[in-house]
């Protein structure tokens, strides 16, 4: 295995495009090193992108959104007051990933590219409308985060392409987001179901919303019908009932030791209601 530590994303993309064998990008390493160890992958070329300037930084964009470097670890997100104030749901999703030690290394981009349908940080990113900036051998493009995973362990990135940053849109006034997951214990487990909601309000009325489910389909799933169920409402009982139905209808989970199809489907509705409530309270500026 050859180890590369390029100084720019263009160089990283060229290396990957020209590599004859198996290539892996290394950011936090909390998935890649486990795969190496288990001999699930045997890369010929490992491209460490952490030496590229800016990859460990969180910065404001010109439009008052955020640019998150691909090597920013979970612990850094949790310690960033400004980002947390704008996008608490994105941050709380990432903070659920792994132990304190894993938080010292694991990244949003890595969690996204690992392609797990149960990835805790991805629903929050999708709900937020986050965009991935991709650098490839022929230049840069941007793609909505929900279009990156294509199935368990698979992404839409092509040979030579690497995510060079994640971009969060401006939060704007009267917005709130939240992420909840169900696990059978309190810590250190993989989501049986996850749900993120992001919304904006005008007075008591929801004017825009995005509802996203994790671990109930081959990929994290954006559920437009669930958003429709609460837009134009004050999150009253009828809206919550419609939200529950839409969330349940979007589920096509697997049956496994973590949860049955019926259980996962029911929990998806419950978490959608609860996450919507938290996001709504946050958007209305106060109590959580």
């Amino acid at each position: 295995m050859r180890y590369h530590a390029p100084q720019t994303f263009e160089e990283a993309a060229q290396l990957a495009a020209q590599a004859p064998g198996v290539t892996r990008f290394l950011a936090g390493g909390t998935d890649v090193l486990v795969q190496l160890r288990a001999a699930m992958v045997r890369p010929d070329d490992l491209i460490d992108i952490k030496k590229i300037p800016g990859t460990a930084e969180i910065s404001r964009t010109a439009d008052e959104g955020w640019r998150i470097g691909v090597a920013v670890a979970g612990a850094q997100l949790g310690a960033h007051a400004g980002l947390k104030a704008d996008w608490p749901g994105v941050v709380e999703g990432m903070e659920l990933v792994g132990s304190t030690q894993v938080q010292g290394r694991a990244t949003l981009t890595g969690n996204l590219c690992n392609g797990s349908p149960a990835a805790d940080s991805v629903p929050g990113l999708v709900a937020a409308g986050a965009v991935a900036e991709i650098t490839g051998p022929t230049g840069k493009r941007t793609v909505a985060v929900e279009d990156i995973p294509t199935g368990p362990g698979r992404t839409s990135l092509t040979k030579g392409e690497v995510i060079s940053a994640l971009l969060l849109p401006p939060r704007g006034a009267h917005g709130g987001d939240a992420y909840l997951r169900f696990i059978p214990r309190t810590e250190m487990d993989i989501a049986v179901v996850g749900c993120a909601v992001s919304l904006t309000v005008e007075g008591a009325t929801i004017t825009a919303a995005r509802v996203v489910l994790g671990a109930v389909a081959p990929t994290v799933r954006l559920v437009p019908d669930a958003a429709k169920a609460i837009i134009g409402t004050a999150l009253d009982d009828a809206a919550l009932a419609a939200l529950t139905k839409a969330a349940e209808a979007a589920c096509s989970p697997i049956d496994d030791k973590r949860g049955t199809i019926a259980f996962r489907t029911e929990v998806a509705g419950v978490l959608a209601r609860r996450a919507a409530r938290i996001a709504y309270d946050r958007a209305r500026g106060g109590k959580q």
Binding site: L26, G28, T30, L33, Q101, V102, G104, R105
Partner: peptide, 10 residues
């Protein structure tokens, strides 16, 4: 200064 698992660092 950051707490990490040294088995997950090259």
């Amino acid at each position: 200064g950051t707490l990490v698992c040294s088995c997950l660092v090259l």
